[in-house]
Design a protein around this nucleic acid. Structure first.
Lengths: 151, 151
DNA sequence: TGAAATTGCGAGTATATACACTGTTTTCTC
DNA sequence: GAGAAAACAGTGTATATACTCGCAATTTCA
């Protein structure tokens, strides 16, 4: 293959790659939400983990990882940070292999403080799209996730 | 606010957060593409950076960062890795502040080897969606990016 | 009941990401 | 032309991500 063809393929790959576009949007949204959440001291990742933990508590690490579609070992490390800041507690379960996550009073306070800031970011995005486009986008994102899970 | 209401808000936040859903899809797609690309030794991030560099070379770090919508300092570190593996070269430009990126012969070989693997992953996703849904999704992702850029 | 398989989790290692700050070079302005 | 402003890039630090490996507790089953 000559040089020109190779460059052309490279151009196609980087302008059309689905993963690239999703990652790009992910970076942009993360920066946006993080910026809005800054006064709360939580990042959007932490806000989401903490919120999921509160909604599901008491919950084990593996169950929570499954719920938010994150690698378990990634979640372990993210939880360690929340624990260090006193926002969650990790205790041994009945099954001594398991570790149960509970949100502390500080954790609930942090969530309550962050919630209106999150809402501001969320409204900015959702109101611009409108409920119809938003719902459809949500569906497509779910489709993408399941497309990568099935083989 | 009572305990129940707080948990309810937490549940809403983590089930509807736009950022959470995009990040989730991003993780899933990244794992999928990385898995397919594994025999090539490139990750999808590296594949995309290398492809963009080849399409735009010679290009400075800031220009490339702009093109792929990545923080410049992130790109600097990602490029360092590609340089260490001999896939790109970083040379001083005429303007001595700039550093120019060029893809080496090894880099082009790595891209050529990875291309069919990338294509396999890409086809899996795109053929499942079909061109129409894919184009619309691409448009929505662009919209999201610009929604976070404008204030 | 005891060995094998399974389950739950952590550590080691590597990459990706970005904010705040710093230094250097170039350009602009008076 | 000197000083100010802008542009380009690197470092320090912190977080997010996940693969591989390994250990301990539990369950399964012969």
């Amino acid at each position: 293959m000559d040089r020109r063809k190779r460059a052309e393929k490279a151009r196609i790959a980087f302008t059309t790659c689905a993963c690239h576009h999703i990652r790009k949007a992910s970076r942009a949204l993360t920066q946006f939400y993080d910026e809005k959440l800054r006064p709360s001291g939580l990042r959007v990742t932490q806000f989401n983990i903490l919120g999921a933990a509160l909604a599901l508590e008491p919950v084990t690490i593996s169950r929570l990882a499954e719920a938010i579609v994150t690698d378990r070992t990634t979640l372990t490390r993210n939880l360690r940070l929340l624990e260090k800041h006193g926002l969650i507690r990790l205790t041994a379960g009945k099954d001594r292999r398991q570790r149960e996550i509970t949100v502390t009073a500080d954790g609930r306070r942090a969530l309550a403080k962050a919630y209106p800031l999150w809402r501001e970011a969320q409204v900015h995005i959702l109101s611009a799209l409108g409920p119809k486009r938003w719902q459809r986008l949500l569906g497509e994102l779910s489709t993408l996730v399941s497309l990568t899970r099935q083989e």
